[in-house]
Design a protein around this nucleic acid. Structure first.
Length: 180
DNA sequence: GAGCCGATATTCT
DNA sequence: GAATATCGGCTCC
């Protein structure tokens, strides 16, 4: 199983099409599903991207095949999950910044220690679904993978806004959220 | 609800 | 030594 063809296109075209998709996690034998409502695009020709300075230990996955999961540590504390995009050897990915819980509310509440905003925010999303650095590089379209993506089969009307928490290339409107 | 702040790993200067 | 694709707890409205 491999990613749909459009994942190999421009990352800023792929990102908005992921709104409404579901991430499915079966880590630790517990099922959780989240429907994406916030994503950001990061391109190789993009000073704000980890891939901007080329492949190096820790970001190689971003240069791999479209449809792989790229996980990195943020601020030394949080894990953040991305979907690799573009052709093989090109460093681009979509950061999954947040979504709404669909399945496994109890599991997510336990992992998060709260009942609200279970999967809103990239660090929170990863924590709720128990996604960590050990999942870096796995195939999101392999039915046997513990973390997978499921198509929404629809295009969600969306807005393009500035990305969060970056200081470079802030003029690129590559954060996508459903239109109000 | 807004604003400050500390925690902490990795990379870059 | 500084910066970072963050968060939650705290204060003070």
């Amino acid at each position: 199983m491999s990613a749909p063809d459009f994942f190999r296109g421009e990352v800023f075209d792929v990102a908005p099409r992921l709104l409404g998709w579901r991430i499915v996690s079966e880590v630790e034998g517990e099922l959780t599903e989240v429907e994406l409502n916030e994503v950001e695009a990061y391109n190789q020709d993009d000073p704000a991207s980890h891939s901007y300075r080329g492949p190096r230990p820790g970001n190689e996955v971003m240069f791999g095949l479209a449809g792989l999961l790229y996980v990195y540590r943020s601020y030394g504390i949080h894990w953040c999950a991305n979907v690799v995009c573009g052709p093989d050897g090109f460093g681009a990915a979509v950061l999954m910044r947040g979504g709404t819980a669909v399945t496994g509310h109890e599991v997510m509440m336990r992992r998060r220690g709260r009942v609200a905003r279970l999967a809103q925010g990239p660090g929170n999303l990863a924590q709720a679904m128990a996604i960590t650095g050990e999942h870096n590089g796995l195939d999101l379209f392999d039915p046997h993978s513990p973390v997978r993506l499921e198509s929404a089969n629809r295009l969600v009307p969306h807005l393009a806004t500035p990305r969060i928490g970056i200081s470079k290339a802030t003029d690129r409107l590559w954060r996508f959220v459903p239109q109000a």
